[in-house]
Design a protein around this nucleic acid. Sequence first.
DNA 1: TTTGATGCAAAGTATTTGCAATCGG
DNA 2: CCGATTGCAAATACTTTGCATCAAA
Lengths: 129, 129
Amino acid sequence: MRRSKARETIIEELQKVKTHPRVDELFHLVRRRMPRISLGTVYRNLDRLRHEGAVAEIFCGDFNRYDGDTSRHHHFLCRRCQRVWDLDGQVALKVELTTQPGDFRIDGEQVLLYGLCRECLEGEGLSHL
Amino acid sequence: MRRSKARETIIEELQKVKTHPRVDELFHLVRRRMPRISLGTVYRNLDRLRHEGAVAEIFCGDFNRYDGDTSRHHHFLCRRCQRVWDLDGQVALKVELTTQPGDFRIDGEQVLLYGLCRECLEGEGLSHL
DNA sequence: TTTGATGCAAAGTATTTGCAATCGG
DNA sequence: CCGATTGCAAATACTTTGCATCAAA
């Protein structure tokens, strides 16, 4: 794969943020540095970067999100504000295969917890729930 | 919520299959019994059934899938044929919170393993991998 | 009868693609 | 130079929505 300014800028911006942006959000971030970049280029490059394992796609419903951190970790999705957080200290989660797969070759996993974030709980006066 | 023939047929068909259909696939199943049902009605009802917890949505990439079985279980997605299976005997998985959440109220989880199913491995002569 | 639910079609979003121009090696 | 990559715009999905009509209670 030939290197390109667009692809390098895309992955740099993605690794800079912790917000797990949607494609259009990342597009706007990249456009601050490359005003003429097109949305199609962002889609094309994210696809390639994902195939080579340089970025991770987070399946979270209507629009998917991207993560520049490909180390093994899990996410939390707020079903009200739709933001996604990394789970580290706040919530530790143990995921392990307890039997060997016979019918599938497993090469990845995606663990998504969902619910409401603190801000949304408080904003709706639901923190007592 | 008032009962309706469409909604009842939708959930019946969804509970009948084990394939975790996409919305359009479920639409075709339901249409065999209700030829005049519209795709919009299927979307509307799946949305309501999901909100009341009668069906589960599986986030698995481009198109989401639905599951009539809402008991706690996890899924496997084949990244070649895009089919989704329930994980039960073949692969047992242990998922547990190891700390109490401080910043989030968690009400659900979604665990998706992905890779290649046996059929796709064999079909591509990759079963040795 | 009342009002929620539906069919239909149009609108709204998200994503992909064709192609000529541009860039990287 | 040559072929990969891009910008642009058009084409494709996919999903939601407005509204007149239908149907459940």
